[in-house]
Amino acid sequence: MDFNDDQWKSWAFLMGQIQEGDMEAYALLLSEISPLIFNYVRKRVFNPSQVEDVYQDVLLTFHKARHTYQTDRPFSPWLFTVVRNAVWAALSKRHKVTAKEVQFETLPETSVQIHKEEGLEDDLQDALNTLPEANRRAVEMLKLQGMDLETAAKELGISKVALKVRAHRGYAQLRKKLMREN
């Protein structure tokens, strides 16, 4: 990722223009730094399925922090501080979600097996029907229809993280209901 001084200076100049409300400068800057940020993220995120989400979070953080850039200061330390911290924050957020998800992920499958063995599919269906629509759809798509995260998220028009959260809530609610009934 070798960029010469002129390149960084021109980006610093564009940041100044952006702060004056120039949207064209913002588009030009995004077109030039997006590949740089994307490559930075790709090198640090080892799970390929997370790269896109982390990249979007990082770019959004850049967008929200752009008012703190001082035009008389070099651009690269500012940009890399923002990007480095944003990658770290995005990864730790996902780590927390995944850690919770793993604990619950196996539970509905076990419940389905038990229900099948005992001929209690109706109970499961009843419990599923009581879940909020968004959580029920997430559980059905991932666990009953066996769809992968990406396809299911695309079909629902939401991000993978949002889908995971919905499914996780659904598993927890389902578990509570089934345990109460049994």
């Binding site: 913002y26 588009a27 590949p35 896109e52 959004l60």
Partner: peptide, 12 residues
């Protein structure tokens, strides 16, 4: 590329 363009469009 698609991913980067979509994100940039959203920000703009």
């Amino acid at each position: 590329p698609d991913i980067q363009r979509r994100a940039a469009e959203k920000l703009l």
